[in-house]
Design a protein around this nucleic acid. Sequence first.
DNA 1: CATCAGGGCCCTG
DNA 2: CAGGGCCCTGAT
Length: 322
Amino acid sequence: MINLNKTFSTTLKPIPPYNFDSTVLKPAHYPDPLKVYEAGKYWFVLRLNKKVYGIKLLNKGVVNKPEIQIVIFSKTKPSQNEIKDIIEEVSYRFEFQRDISEFFKKFKKDKVLSPFIKRWYGMHGSCAQDLYGLLMIGIFLQNTVIKRTVQMTKNMLEKYGIKVKFDNKEVYYFWTPEEIIKIPEKELRNLKVGYRAKLFIKLSQSFIKEKINEYELRQLPVEEAKERLLKLYGVGPETVRILLVEALHHYDIFDHIAPWQQKIYSRLLFNKKLVSVDKIIKYVNSKWGEWAGLAASYIWENIFWKRKQGKKIDWLEKEIRL
DNA sequence: CATCAGGGCCCTG
DNA sequence: CAGGGCCCTGAT
């Protein structure tokens, strides 16, 4: 267990509109011990430049005049440069400086989208993990049910991850690639991750050897980033979609739908049980173009927020199998 | 008790 | 390009 103390705090001003809660928390995600959320508050662990920080975000503003207090917890007092790097990284992950007002201007009167925009005005995409961390999550999701995904995540984090205590919260984060490649595959398999054990090792080796540079990937156009990520062993169309949309924040891609998602989109967009994947993709892209990915997320997250807020949606429960 | 699909992907033929 | 196999687990 790593104990961290409060060492720095400041207030940031994201570009409006910025909706804090719907940006930091994505109820469509499976429950994990990687963050703690309370209304207007968010705790997570940041691994940056070989150091470990606890980060607390506090909503101090409103959607049209957003202010976020960021509190840094660390072992030693961070230097000015360290602080600058941390703030830059957190700003990227939560899109404090991304102006998406164009999206709202363009679609506030859109027949389909307008009610969702009204409800979640200022919601951005976000990802508290780095690319490597999200990739690990992507592997946990492969070819299984959510219950087992949750179990595998817990097993692996408790054995090989780091448990960080700060601000009276306990939050986990992932191991480093360097650490996990030293573990024999058999030992990983003992944690009931199955064939994924091999993937964790191979992928971690790729991150070290091929020097997969997240910062470089962030600069690439979506198709180029996609091409590079698909070269990774164990990364296919669904995992790459997760990485592109969440870790690399691409709003302009909507080209893959897994079967369980197909059922949900069919209901949400067409009010039908099952519409072909091809038809859904064409519909979303033709309607919302370069904003297709973000538009889809407004419709997608909305139903999961309703669920989180206690609304019973029988057909949805059947599809997500928690 | 046995069988099987599941929030994919790789490999083979 | 289709289809089998992979790990394990809860559901049937």
